[in-house]
Amino acid sequence: MTTPSQTVGPFLSIGLPWPDGPTVVPLDTPGAIRIVGTVFDGAGNTVPDALIETWQADPDGHFDHPDDPSGPLRKEFRAFGRCPTDVDGNYWILTLPPGAIPGQAPHIDVSVFARGLLNRVVTRIYFADDASDPVLSSVDPERRHTLIAQPTEDGYRFDIRLQGEGETVFFDV
């Protein structure tokens, strides 16, 4: 029998999501982008009970953190999103494109919680292969594509593969 002390899921759907969790900005925000994706397990099956959390800088490169001296966040920009996957393993986040922060390319930090994981896994969404970013450039070039979102009609697609062929690069934090 699985218990909460053995895995971080499937207990996530009980209390962690909230109705506007996926909307980092209001639906009618000019310039908003929609990031969609699917979470896959090691066998290539979709994960219907995962939880995706995002944290990012606003378009001006400001973080919602007391140690960020660069200024306040934009109005109506939460900087944090949370979306459970649906029965088909899909998630979405509505946000503004992140700005660059000193020494790093624009990116969104992502935590993934799912059944079978003892701890969350952490990755990043980048919007281009930017060799000037020290984190992205430290990743094996053969695997770097797993961190780069693909443009769509109304935003970007970022699938997450928890293990196996095409596994998303995760960081030890």
Score class of each variant (00 low, 15 high):
M1K: 09
T2E: 09
P4E: 13
P4Q: 06
V8Q: 08
G9Q: 06
F11Y: 15
L12R: 07
I14V: 13
P17L: 12
P19F: 06
P19N: 14
P22Y: 11
L27G: 06
D28H: 14
P30T: 01
R34W: 04
R34F: 14
V36Y: 00
G37A: 02
G37F: 02
V39I: 00
F40V: 05
F40Q: 07
D41V: 04
G42P: 02
A43M: 15
G44R: 10
G44N: 10
N45A: 15
T46F: 15
V47S: 08
V47T: 11
D49M: 03
A50C: 08
A50L: 11
A50R: 06
L51A: 08
I52V: 15
I52H: 02
I52D: 06
W55T: 02
A57D: 07
A57I: 01
P59E: 09
D60C: 13
D60T: 07
D60W: 01
H62V: 04
F63I: 05
H65L: 03
P66G: 03
D68C: 06
S70A: 11
G71M: 04
G71T: 00
L73G: 02
L73S: 09
E76Q: 15
F77R: 05
F77C: 03
F77Q: 01
R78A: 05
A79T: 03
A79R: 00
F80A: 03
R82L: 14
C83F: 04
P84L: 09
D86V: 02
D88K: 08
G89A: 13
N90G: 02
Y91E: 02
Y91N: 01
I93E: 10
L94T: 04
T95E: 07
P97M: 12
A100H: 11
G103F: 13
G103V: 01
Q104M: 13
I108E: 01
I108A: 05
S111L: 10
S111Q: 01
V112H: 05
V112G: 11
G116F: 03
L118D: 11
V122N: 12
V122W: 10
T123K: 00
R124T: 00
R124G: 01
F127R: 05
F127L: 13
A128Y: 09
A128S: 15
A128H: 15
A128T: 11
D129T: 08
D130Y: 10
A131E: 15
S132T: 15
S132I: 02
V135F: 07
S137V: 13
V139C: 13
V139T: 12
D140R: 09
D140K: 09
P141W: 11
E142H: 13
R144F: 13
R144N: 11
H145C: 06
I148V: 15
Q150H: 14
P151F: 07
E153P: 01
Y156R: 01
Y156P: 03
F158W: 07
D159Y: 05
I160K: 06
I160N: 03
L162V: 08
Q163C: 04
G164A: 10
G164N: 05
E165G: 07
E165T: 12
E165W: 02
E167Y: 11
V169A: 05
D172R: 14
V173F: 14
